[in-house]
Design a protein around this nucleic acid. Structure first.
Length: 700
RNA sequence: GGCGCGGUAGCUCAGGUGGUUAGAGCGUUGGAUUCAUAACCCAAAGGUCGGGGGUUCAACUCCCCCCCGCGCUACCA
C-alpha cells in the first residue's frame, strides 16, 4: 500500500433540510470518524472535514412546508445536525456550511476557472417563466395535471401520486406555485459539464487504476455508469436559492447544488486554515496540533499528489463522488482526485427501509434524547453491523444484545475484573511483575499482534472486522484471568497474583488505546480509571504500559445493562411515529378543487370483469388486461404487476373509468383505467363491489 | 426490461487469484467456575454455501440459465 504524506478525509455533507438518522451515521460518519481517529492515533497528518449542504431546491421546499424561510431551515438543521455529531463523538476538524461566504467564493472561483478554460458548454433551452414573480421556475415550483395518472397536483419533476418522473413541459395545465399564474415558456441559458468527454480518463483512472483497491459495490456502480455512457449535465439552475453564477449574463441563476456541494469539502478546508492561522475559531475545531499554519496551507490537502483523499459516503452518493466531482477536479487541473471512496450500502431498520419522511427511522437527536449517556453503544452497534458489502439491518433487540452480551459482559466486565482485583489485593496500585510463565508469554504474544491486526483491518476499511478485533482483545483478558485464576492463588502465592494482575492491567491499558477510535468516550473513561494520559496507537501491543507501583484511579462501570422494557418502549415509539406520520400524510393531502355534479357526470365509471391477464413484455410494472365492460371487451394496461399476478386477476371484478381518453403505453393502447387504492406502504388494492354485479354496471 | 451489488448455520455476517473435516459472534444445549454488572471460561449440536446445468482430478469460489432481495435506469399505474 502506497505511503502518503498526509490525508484529507471527508464525510458526506448532510443535507440541511431535516434531521439525519442512524443510517446516515452508519453509511458515512461513524466509519469516517473511526478511520480518522485511528490515523491521528498513528501520528498521521490528517484533516477531517464535513459540513452542512444548504443549497438546492429541497431547502426552499422544506421552508414552504414549515412555513418559514430557507435561511431559517438551514440554520435550524445545521445546528441540530452539528450538535448531534458532536455528542456522538464525530471529531471533525471543521464542520462548515455551504452558506458561508468563503464557500460561495470558492465555488465561484472554480466555476469561473472552468468557464475560462472553456470546459463548460453553453446551451439554450426553453423553460417555464413566471412573469409576476420574474423568475424561471424550477421543476418543483410548477404543478399541473399528471399526463399519466391525471393527478392534478403533480410537480414538474415528478408526480407523487403515481411516481412518474416528469419534465415540466409534460404537465397539463401547468401553473406556478409562487403566484398561481400560468407560466410561459422562455429561453434560458445554462452551462453544462460534458461528462462524456472524460469517459476515457475515467476508464483509465477507475476501471484500470482502481479495479483492486476499491470496494466491489463502488467499482461496479462506477463501471455501470461509465459503460452506459455519460451525458452532459447542467451545472447551473434557474433558482433564487444558492450560489450566484459568477457571469454577467447569468442573472437569477445559481450553481447546481451538486456542483457546489462537494466543493464544500474544499472551502471547509480553506476556512479551517484561515481560522486556525488567524487564531479565530468559528467553525474549526482542530482535533490535533497543526503547528504553525498559513491560510494557503489548504492547498497541501487538495493539490499535493502526496495527499491521500478519501471520501466517506453512502451508496446514494457514489456517482457524484466517483464520477462528477472527480471530473470537475480533474478538468480544473490543479486538484488531486480521491484515492478511495469506501461507500457503504444502506442500513435497514427492523425489517424495513429507513426513511425520515415515512417515520421509519431513528433520528440522531431522538437517540441522543433517549440515551444521552450512551453514544458509544450506538457507535458500537452501528460498527458491528456496518453495511459494508450489502444492506444490513439494525434492530433494537440486536442493540440490546450487543450492549449486554458484548460491551457489558466482555469489554466492561474484563476492565472491571482487572481493576476490582487490583483494588482488593494490591491497594489499587499496579503490582510487581516477577517471572513469567508460559501462559503469560502466550498472552503477551497475542497482545502484541492484535492491535496491528486491527490496524490492518482499518487501513482496508474493514470496520466490522476491526471492531470484532477490539472485542477479541477484551476476550484475551477474560480468558487470561479465567486460565490463571488469581482469586484462587491469592492466599498461596500473592507474588504470582501480582504478575497476573500486572499483565491484566497492561491489557486494560491497551484497550484504552485501541478502543479510542471506536468508543472514544469509553476509552477516555478507561484511561481515567487507570489514572493515565492516553497514548498513541504506536504504543499499542506493548506489555509495559503500566509502571509498577502506579496508583490507579477510581473505577466505575463502563457500560450498563439495558433491560427488556427499554427495548419494548423503543419499538412502540418507532411504530407510533410511523402511524402518526401516515395519518399526517393522509390528512395533509389537500382536497382537490371542488367540481360540479356535471363534472362528475362526465366520468363513466363501470364495473368490469377481467377476462384475460398477461404480463407486458419488457415492463416490470404493467399488466395487460382484457376486460369485459358490458358493452365491449377492451384492452387496459394497468401498472399492478408488482402487486398482482396475471393469474390472480383473471375472473376478478374491477372498477374502471370507461371513457378515459385512450393512451398508448409501450406500443399498446390502453382503453381505460382501473381504479386502485394505495395503502401507506404503497401497496395497491383494486376496488370491487361488495357483491358480484353484471359487467357494465354503472357506478354513480 | 437493461445494468450493478447481494442470496453461506435459528439470527447478524467472514470466506484475494478453485484444493485437506466451510468459519466468527450472538442464540441453543452441556460442562467448569465465582474475582466480576448471574457476567466470564471450555465444549457440543447446528449448513446438500438460493435452485438447476456445465467446465475441472477438484467449485461456496469459474461459465450458462432460472428464482429472490436491494439499488440505478427504462417504461409506468
Amino acid at each position: 500500500m502506497k505511503e502518503f504524506k498526509r490525508y484529507t478525509v471527508t464525510a458526506a455533507l448532510p443535507y440541511a433540510n431535516g434531521p439525519k438518522h442512524i443510517g446516515h451515521l452508519a453509511g458515512a460518519y461513524i466509519p469516517a470518524d473511526v478511520y480518522v481517529r485511528y490515523l491521528r492515533s498513528m501520528g498521521k497528518d490528517v484533516l477531517f472535514v464535513s459540513g452542512s449542504d444548504e443549497h438546492g431546491t429541497a431547502i426552499p421546499n422544506q421552508a414552504l412546508k414549515e412555513k418559514t424561510t430557507s435561511r431559517a431551515i438551514i440554520d435550524k438543521y445545521h445546528v441540530q445536525i452539528r450538535d448531534c455529531f458532536r455528542k456522538l463523538g464525530i471529531a471533525f476538524d471543521i464542520y462548515h456550511r455551504t452558506s458561508e461566504p468563503i464557500h460561495h467564493e470558492t465555488s465561484q472561483e472554480i466555476f469561473l476557472n472552468m468557464f475560462n478554460k472553456g470546459l463548460l458548454d453553453e446551451e439554450i433551452s426553453e423553460q417555464y417563466y413566471d412573469d409576476e414573480a420574474k423568475a424561471f421556475l424550477a421543476d418543483r415550483y410548477i404543478v399541473g395535471t399528471c399526463p399519466r395518472c391525471g393527478h392534478t397536483n403533480a410537480y414538474g419533476d415528478q408526480c407523487e401520486k403515481c411516481g412518474s418522473t416528469l419534465s415540466p413541459r409534460e404537465l397539463i395545465n401547468p401553473r406556478s406555485t409562487l403566484t398561481g399564474n400560468v407560466p410561459a415558456l422562455r429561453e434560458t441559458k445554462h452551462w453544462y459539464l460534458p461528462l462524456e468527454k472524460y469517459e476515457h480518463w475515467l476508464q483509465e483512472w477507475i476501471l484500470k487504476g482502481h479495479a483492486k483497491d476499491w470496494k466491489v459495490n463502488v467499482y461496479g456502480q462506477c463501471k455501470s455508469w461509465i459503460d452506459a455512457g455519460l451525458q452532459s449535465r447542467a451545472m447551473t439552475r434557474d433558482l433564487d436559492w444558492g450560489i450566484k453564477v459568477p457571469l454577467p449574463e447569468a442573472e437569477g441563476k445559481v450553481l447546481y447544488v451538486w456542483f457546489d456541494a462537494p466543493i464544500g469539502y474544499i472551502s471547509a478546508t480553506r476556512a479551517f486554515f484561515r481560522e486556525v492561522s488567524l487564531g479565530k475559531l468559528e467553525f474549526a475545531q482542530p482535533q490535533r496540533s497543526f503547528g504553525l499554519v498559513q491560510p494557503e496551507d489548504w492547498k497541501k490537502y487538495w493539490q499535493d499528489k502526496e495527499t491521500k483523499l478519501v471520501h466517506f459516503i453512502g451508496k446514494d452518493n457514489i456517482v457524484f463522488h466517483c464520477i462528477i466531482f472527480p471530473i470537475m477536479l480533474h478538468a480544473h487541473g490543479d486538484y488531486i482526485v480521491p484515492d478511495n471512496v469506501p461507500a457503504n450500502e444502506f442500513m435497514n431498520l427492523e425489517g424495513d427501509k429507513m426513511s425520515t419522511s415515512r417515520g421509519w427511522s431513528i433520528e440522531m437527536h431522538e437517540y441522543l434524547e433517549d440515551f444521552p449517556d450512551k453514544p458509544d453503544v450506538l457507535r458500537y452497534c452501528l460498527l458491528a453491523n456496518l453495511p459494508e458489502t450489502k444492506d444490513s439491518e439494525f434492530t433494537w433487540k440486536d442493540f440490546q444484545s450487543r450492549n449486554n452480551n458484548e460491551l457489558v459482559a466482555i469489554l466492561g466486565n474484563f476492565v472491571n475484573r482487572a481493576l476490582v482485583l487490583t483494588q482488593k489485593y494490591f491497594d489499587n496500585k499496579v503490582p510487581h511483575r516477577s517471572t513469567l510463565d508460559t501462559i503469560d508469554i502466550k498472552a503477551i504474544e497475542v497482545l502484541r499482534v492484535l492491535p496491528s491486526r486491527i490496524a490492518q483491518s482499518l487501513e482496508y476499511f474493514h470496520f466490522r472486522e476491526a471492531t470484532a478485533g477490539l472485542l477479541d482483545l477484551a476476550r484475551l483478558g477474560n480468558k487470561y484471568l479465567a486460565d490463571t485464576e488469581p482469586w484462587k492463588l491469592i492466599k498461596s502465592d500473592p507474588v504470582r497474583v501480582g504478575t497476573i494482575l500486572n499483565l491484566a492491567l497492561q491489557i486494560v491499558a491497551n484497550l484504552g488505546i485501541v478502543a479510542e477510535p471506536f468508543l472514544p468516550f469509553s476509552a477516555k473513561k478507561i484511561n481515567e480509571m487507570l489514572n493515565r494520559k492516553p497514548e498513541t496507537w504506536i504504543d499499542a501491543g506493548s506489555d509495559v504500559l503500566m509502571a509498577e507501583g502506579h496508583a490507579l484511579g477510581v473505577s466505575s462501570l463502563l457500560f450498563e445493562k439495558i433491560e427488556d422494557g427499554v427495548i419494548v418502549q423503543q419499538l412502540e415509539k418507532l411504530h407510533n411515529k410511523k402511524l402518526g406520520i401516515e395519518t399526517e400524510v393522509y390528512s395533509s393531502m389537500p382536497l382537490k378543487d371542488e367540481i360540479t355534479f356535471d363534472d362528475f357526470a362526465k366520468l363513466d365509471i363501470r364495473v368490469g370483469n377481467v377476462l384475460k391477464a398477461e404480463k407486458m413484455e419488457k415492463s416490470s410494472k404493467l399488466l395487460k388486461l382484457i376486460v369485459d365492460t358490458g358493452v365491449d371487451h377492451r384492452t387496459i394496461l394497468s401498472g399492478i404487476a408488482q402487486h398482482y399476478t396475471p393469474e390472480e386477476m383473471v375472473g376478478k371484478q374491477v372498477t374502471l373509468i370507461a371513457n378515459l381518453k385512450p393512451r398508448k403505453m409501450m406500443g399498446i393502447e390502453s382503453q381505460g383505467m382501473i381504479l386502485m387504492a394505495e395503502d401507506a406502504k404503497g401497496k395497491l388494492k383494486f376496488l370491487q363491489p361488495s357483491d358480484i354485479v353484471s359487467p357494465g354496471a354503472v357506478v354513480s
